[in-house]
Design a protein around this nucleic acid. Sequence first.
DNA 1: GTTTTTATTGACAGATCTGTCAATAAATGC
DNA 2: GCATTTATTGACAGATCTGTCAATAAAAAC
Lengths: 195, 195
Amino acid sequence: MAENEKQEMIIDAALEVFCDKGYANTRMADIARVAGVSYGLVYHYFGGKEVLFDVIVEGWWKDLYKMLEAEELSDVTVQQKLEHIIGFLLDRYQHSPNLVSIFITEVSRGSVYHTARGLARFNRYFDLTEKIMKDGQEKGFLRKDVPPHYLTYIFLGAIEVFLSVLVLGKESLTDHRRERTINGIIQVFVNGARA
Amino acid sequence: MAENEKQEMIIDAALEVFCDKGYANTRMADIARVAGVSYGLVYHYFGGKEVLFDVIVEGWWKDLYKMLEAEELSDVTVQQKLEHIIGFLLDRYQHSPNLVSIFITEVSRGSVYHTARGLARFNRYFDLTEKIMKDGQEKGFLRKDVPPHYLTYIFLGAIEVFLSVLVLGKESLTDHRRERTINGIIQVFVNGARA
DNA sequence: GTTTTTATTGACAGATCTGTCAATAAATGC
DNA sequence: GCATTTATTGACAGATCTGTCAATAAAAAC
């Protein structure tokens, strides 16, 4: 996918326009203009708006799953795995803020993704994270009196809000802030907010 | 607002259609049909699609702010205030799932709300919650080594994911599950996930 | 009881936007 | 060098959807 130069330009333009205007307000003509190609070429390479959006979203999920599967098998502590998950998502924001923005605003909630396939993608995301939580419970690191999917919701929910704040404020992420964010989330999630 | 019977029918229909199809895919004709009134009447009472949506969303925020302001002044422990916030949102889901669904899928993230006013609404929501967190820190209940807005993000993020799961799965909420959810979130947020 | 305001209707014009297509240029195969 | 496939273009038809409006019915005012 996208070995071709113009295909990449179209994807990049789509990333930018989807991010700026949202899926519903994105015009194929805008993408073509930003990409610097003709209207018809977008349809030549990608079938249409929905397909183009799907290519982007599927790429996002693929990378996310890959990371989570690697962490699951990785030979580090559960706490380190959780730190890696937060770090991965923050790094993605640094590297491609547009993509993270689309995930947060269009995929993570947006009515665009209320399909069976969209739901399946989400379930996989949650399930992979839940495996790590279960592992943490079995190893005696995480408490067992709270269901593992509750731990998953709370953990991923926390990350999502941090990402949302970055996205909505179009803020940039310094290395220092990255570390502070990871530590903040981990500290509260693992040890609690109690003094 | 909406003292009139037909106005209420239009609002109810809008709630249903916005929830089912999302803002972008909602047709004014659908709302009119579901409400059982003519196309033109929707424009007579509400100026247009955006206004109608705003009426719904402003109502949501108004209630949310009211609750948070009451909790802030309330004479209970900080933990109880946090429990009340979760309880309030879960109750709203029980009472008007369509409204919560719209909040989660369209307002909380959706590109529809990436405006200055939308951002201001959100800031207020976060600020009011942060006041409670600060209060908790001053009273010695919450840890002071994590900035209060971090505590806010993690707390509200956790709630949002629980609501999202309810909304996406169109699940109903029993009293028992309501209590379990409140306890789960509070337990992990206050005491941490560590065994 | 007449006038004025409000409620209510559905057709319509205007404004988009998408996806197609026929035409042309470039590249590739043979 | 000719034929076939691939790249590229922009205009256009078809399909929406929104908001307006003129017309009619009902209610209120006086």
